[in-house]
């Protein structure tokens, strides 16, 4: 674990893997003074509300590193209550969200051609393994999903679309994702879902949160 500076009120925690990042998210969020926690692929940005709280948070973080290792048993330094709670798996990470998809996206044939799979094979690959939310960032409720079938790795479209409809399911690089609302976008679109991914009046507002497991299921239009 490396702690990198990020101004008066934040520290960027650099870790070895996405697993280590996701293992820390909930525990770090509960530390006193922490205002926000933003996972990245190998980093966790930790922001405090008051600059005066940053030093205390920085001192607690190295003792939490063990939670990220596969054995998960490394003892934290000290017996801070907030740290202990991290030993229980987060309810969020344990959830599996089923996302029904109609696989009729405009890039289905291109993706099939690129991957060498048939359309049916592509659908089987996308639904064949669970995905996991790594991090957000493109728009409210958008999530970068990882852990899918490696055969599905495709480049972004050479020309982004000016408008991608709400609910579009796409692929880009090693990620899959669902557009929570209509926006411009360069991902390869393979299908669509009716699931409302983001609603600020709902609790939680975003269905896909870092750590959430996602199972895509093929659905007839």
């Amino acid at each position: 674990m490396r702690l990198l500076p990020s101004g008066e009120r934040a520290v960027l925690v650099e870790l070895g893997s996405l697993e280590e990042v996701l293992a820390l998210v909930d525990a770090v969020r509960r530390l006193a003074g922490v205002e926000d926690v933003v996972p990245g692929e190998r980093t966790l940005l930790v922001t405090v509300a008051k600059a005066g709280d940053l030093q205390a948070v920085r001192q607690l973080l190295p003792g939490m590193a063990g939670f990220g290792r596969p054995d998960g048993l490394a003892a934290p330094r000290g017996d801070d209550n907030a740290i202990q709670t991290a030993k229980t798996p987060s309810s969020r990470a344990a959830q599996t969200l089923v996302v029904p998809v109609v696989y009729d996206g405009p890039d289905l044939d291109d993706v099939a051609a690129h991957t060498g799979l048939s359309v049916a094979g592509l659908v089987a690959a996308h639904t064949g393994t669970p995905w996991r939310v790594a991090f957000g960032g493109f728009a409210p409720g958008f999530a970068y999903l990882v852990g899918g079938d490696p055969r599905l790795e495709v480049p972004r479209r050479p020309e982004p679309r000016a408008t991608v409809p709400t609910g579009s399911v796409g692929l880009a690089g090693r990620y899959s994702g669902v557009y929570p609302r209509s926006s411009p976008g360069g991902w390869q679109l393979i299908g669509r879902t009716d699931l409302v991914l983001f609603d600020p009046d709902r609790e939680p507002p975003a269905l896909l949160q870092p750590g959430t497991t996602v199972q895509f299921v093929a659905h007839d239009g």
């Binding site: 926000d36 957000g136 949160q209």
Partner: peptide, 11 residues
């Protein structure tokens, strides 16, 4: 609205 950056919402 700090606290929602993990779901793509800036403060």
């Amino acid at each position: 609205r700090p606290g929602y950056a993990a779901i793509g919402v800036s403060a």
